[in-house]
Design a protein around this nucleic acid. Structure first.
Length: 564
RNA sequence: CGGGGCGUGGCGCAGUCCGGUAGCGCACUGCACUGGGGGUGCAGAGGUCACAGGUUCAAAUCCUGUCGCCCCGACCA
């Protein structure tokens, strides 16, 4: 490609709206153009990079045994009613009516359609296992898109789905995808780590995210200092501090005028926060639920949601708290009737807690689970934080920021049971197909690659995903001799199979160098009167400060040395 | 959805408080010079000042409403 003919211009200044480094650089370099909030066009350079990423994904999916398919973006809403997700996925799920007034959805993901495909195509255990995938546009009406391609509403995703007859098979399919993912990220120049994750709206039991650790990430990841334990904060577990349980004391009420918080209570009593039982109120499906956790920990709402069977909890408003007859600042689960109680297991690792007396200005001493209040649900709802003990007992947790570039799920029978995807086994019995699903955000992968591969001058893209491999800058092109040699070099490089961007513009050298750097093309060749005087052409890697002059006839070899 | 900010040529901004013929830098066009890190000069072109309504002799500027975009939070495969 000749720069003089390339559509798209580089910008000296990024649009004021761009905040992330990847958003800024991709916009400045003319890769992407924003059309609306979270909605982007790809310009030629960006489209080339995306095409390369797509091809890497495709190669690795095929290598792992995946078969490419294509499913519709527009689907009947009834399909989503079958799976039970029509109402729970709102608002990201966008719906509209077609001209016959049928409710349709714009697909944010494709578990439903893929299950339909399997239920029609699978009748026997002999049809299993298989994995299908597609690379296709999704639309999720996120409440807040951000960071350019990092969180877009319309975006391209590679989504794969595996189908197996049993657990072992599902695990095997899952592992094959994990291996493929590792190769994909590596080939795209990303050091993504696999972490334990919550499965969110997709469902299923086990899920893992692939995360690029970077300060600009929007997710918090907790990793162990001494083991390879790593988990998204939504999912992360830890070893809770255990305290000796003494004799249960008598419950005793005492005055605490003006004390509204756990901090104040612990301070006033001169004890650690771990001696208090904190009560927090959540509204779930219109009902107020009392949540009790030891005062030294905080509630993780994702864990809470999972214990509540996936219903979305939100902090109750002061009005709701009051309407439920609770005294904010002095509330506890003690004596609560007709209200669901969720208790974190940290409460069982100690005794004789300080807790609210449900009476303005009073608290209780020696409050204990079972004897003084009940737990309808007892489990882990505590949020892991840095400094806590890793759940495998090895080391402490530290917190890092990261971008989720891929997510893999063991779905099991979540969809097959609801949507009736069965097969006949060896004994003639009917069984549910076990599924896995596996996603990679293609545009986000590009953004993540830029986040982790750039310097002060622009992107520093790996050869595998750079829009072009070689940037050929011709200087002094008004000299016919140099122009002719540059042209010859351009043709040679093309003949050798390289993707070449030939900067044949009438522009000062500085402009060409700045553009070469901004675009992040891995190899740069300069041909100019100076280079020719020096004995040939300059060949330089994007990652190096200085290049080397090689004889014109050695150019291809030098490029080969650099790029392979 | 809560909080904050911003809408003025393709991009970055000034002008708005205090109403009076819309300006600067980059980019763009032509010519000349220059020629290894966004070069110089001369001459140009391009704007419904987000939209609607109102106040006024006069509105980018004041008032009301609407829309859009960004950031923080909530939320989110």
């Amino acid at each position: 490609m000749r720069s003089s003919q390339l559509f798209g211009k580089t910008l000296r200044q990024a649009p004021a709206d761009a905040e992330n480094i990847s958003h800024k650089l991709l916009t400045r370099a003319g890769f992407i153009q924003q059309i609306a909030s979270g909605i982007f066009s790809l310009q030629p350079l960006g489209n080339r990079s995306i095409t390369k990423i797509r091809n890497i994904i495709r190669e690795e999916m095929d290598r792992a045994g995946g078969q490419e398919i294509s499913m519709p973006v527009v689907q009947p809403r009834s399909l989503w009613e079958e799976s039970g997700r029509a109402d729970v996925m709102l608002p990201p799920l966008t719906t509209f009516e077609d001209r016959r007034e049928r409710d349709m959805v714009i697909a944010p993901t494709h578990e439903e359609t893929t299950t339909v495909m399997a239920r029609a195509g699978v009748t026997s255990y002999r049809d299993l296992p298989f994995t299908i995938y597609q690379i296709q546009t999704k639309f999720r009406d996120e409440t807040r898109p951000r960071g350019g391609l990092i969180r877009a509403r319309e975006f391209e995703m590679k989504d794969a789905y595996s189908f197996d007859a049993n657990e072992e098979g599902m695990d095997k399919s899952f592992q094959a995808m994990v291996a493929a993912y590792k190769r994909i990220f590596k080939r795209c120049g990303l050091e993504a780590i696999m972490v334990e994750a919550d499965s969110g709206g997709i469902g299923g039991k086990d899920s893992n995210e692939f995360v690029l650790l970077t300060e600009s990430g929007e997710d918090t990841i907790l990793v162990s200092t001494e083991s390879d334990y790593a988990a998204n904060v939504e999912k992360a577990e830890f070893i809770k501090k255990e305290f000796p349980k003494g004799e249960l004391g008598e419950v005793e009420e005492f005055a605490t005028p003006g004390i509204k918080t756990i901090d104040e209570l612990a301070k006033a009593e001169g004890v650690s926060k771990s001696k208090t039982a904190k009560a927090v109120f959540y509204t779930v499906d219109g009902e107020v639920v009392v949540v009790t956790i030891r005062g030294d920990y905080d509630v993780n709402e994702t864990k809470l949601r999972n214990l509540l069977d996936g219903s979305e909890p939100r902090l109750s408003t002061p009005e709701e708290v009051e309407a439920a007859g609770l005294v904010s600042g002095s509330a506890s689960a003690v004596g609560m009737e007709g209200m669901r109680s969720v208790v974190d297991d940290s409460i069982t690792m100690g005794s004789n807690y300080l807790a609210g007396a449900n009476k303005e200005g009073f608290h209780l001493r020696n409050v204990n689970l079972e004897r003084d209040f009940k737990a309808d649900i007892l489990g882990d709802i505590a949020e892991a934080k840095k400094g806590y003990l890793s759940p495998d007992g090895k080391g402490k947790l530290i917190a890092k920021r990261g971008i989720e570039v891929g997510h893999v799920f063991k779905l099991g029978n979540v969809y097959s049971s609801k949507m009736g995807a069965d097969y006949t086994d060896e004994d003639g019995g009917q069984n549910e197909i076990l599924m896995g699903c596996y996603g990679i955000g293609v545009g986000r992968l590009l953004a993540a690659a830029v986040e982790s591969n750039h310097d002060d001058f622009g992107m520093v893209l790996p050869q595998s995903i750079a829009p072009y491999e070689v940037y050929l800058a011709g200087l002094n092109l008004n000299d016919p001799d140099i122009a002719g040699k540059a042209e010859q070099l351009y043709q040679q490089l093309l003949d050798a199979g390289y993707d070449v961007l030939y900067d044949d513009r009438e522009a000062p050298p500085g402009v060409k160098f700045k553009d070469a750097d901004l675009l992040g093309i891995p190899a740069r060749i300069v041909i100019s009167s100076r280079s020719l005087d020096g004995g040939g052409v300059e060949v330089k890697a994007r990652t190096e400060k200085n290049g080397e002059i090689v004889a014109e006839s050695d150019t291809l070899d030098a490029v080969k040395k650099l790029l392979g």
